[in-house]
């Protein structure tokens, strides 16, 4: 937000902050001003700017979120190998340190930018915005933003992407959606990864994991993928291709989509 244009004043709260508005005086002489804006509205504004940029280029953007080590980079690597010209992808990598993941992606002939967050446990819209203009999005169909491995914080920040994908590897346990509801409630697609290990993990039930996701009122499709099984990776690629087609149609129809990370509380909810 800026100091001059008053863009923190929305149509919903304008009447409260204008002179003569409903300013209630407190006993000690200070004046209480009703604000009712989302605390992350500055991030959301940059995110909307990022999304406009992606939409202008006709690019679909997916935010990959999961615990560290669930196989996000491996999925992108194998995907790049199997794509065979069907889609052109680019990747933004987020990690606390190292350029390792971007290097792995580049080795597959895919454009990759690394964001090193230092101590920050999540990517935010500002970080993505800084890198955005370094990317050549011409002819790109999908940008994957591989978020910092963390099942908590990334879910709260809109980056300007269109779709949230949450990965859950079978070694993590099938109750992760129950333990990290904010993340799994926000997912538009869940990938249960490393399913080649299922024979060794009697405790992990994909059905139970799906049940926990449904209990979060989330009917997102759930794919079971092993990067060692080309057929399962094909199912993931098919889903991505169908989402790209849907996004191109939405852009033609002038329909905006945004992710479930943002709280539209101000507009949706009424609080006294």
């Amino acid at each position: 937000m800026c100091d001059t244009c008053g863009c923190n004043v929305t149509s919903g709260n304008q009447h409260l902050v204008q002179p003569g508005g409903a300013l209630s005086h407190t006993s000690d002489g200070s004046v209480a001003i009703e604000v009712l804006t989302n605390l992350l509205s500055e991030n959301d504004k940059i995110a909307a700017h990022n999304r406009q940029h992606f939409d202008a280029q006709g690019v679909l953007v997916m935010n990959l979120m999961s615990s560290p080590g669930s196989g996000k980079t491996a999925l992108l690597e194998v995907m790049a190998q199997q794509l065979k010209g069907r889609l052109k992808i680019a990747v933004i990598e987020g990690d606390l340190e190292t350029e390792n993941d971007a290097q792995r992606i580049r080795q597959q002939g895919v454009q990759a930018i690394q964001i090193v967050t230092g101590t920050a446990c999540h990517l935010d819209a500002h970080m993505v915005h800084t890198e955005l203009h370094k990317m050549d999005l011409k002819d790109i169909d999908v940008v994957f933003i591989e978020n910092v491995g963390n099942l908590v914080c990334p879910a709260s920040f809109d980056l300007g992407h269109h779709i949230n994908v949450a990965l859950l590897s079978v070694t993590e346990g099938d109750d992760k959606p129950e333990k990290y509801p904010v993340m799994f409630r926000a997912a538009d697609q869940v990938v249960i990864s490393k399913t080649d290990l299922l024979p060794y993990l009697e405790d992990f039930s994909p059905d139970k994991a799906i049940l926990h996701i449904r209990e979060l009122a989330n009917d997102a499709p759930v794919l079971q993928v092993s990067v060692k099984n080309a057929e399962s990776v094909e199912a993931w690629i098919d889903w991505v291709i169908s989402e790209v087609a849907m996004q191109k149609q939405r852009l033609l129809d002038g329909v905006d989509i945004k992710t479930k990370t943002q709280s539209d509380g101000v507009l949706l909810h009424e609080h006294g």
Binding site: V35, N38, R214, E215, H271
Partner: peptide, 30 residues
């Protein structure tokens, strides 16, 4: 938080009415 199903019929096809707010509601100015 981790069971957002309907308390009456148990269906999971629900919409959140309240519970995801992160709002600056009011400030006291001197």
């Amino acid at each position: 938080i981790n069971r957002l199903v309907c308390g009456h019929c148990g269906d999971y096809k629900t919409q959140l009415i309240s519970g995801d707010e992160l709002l600056l509601k009011r400030v006291g100015l001197v």
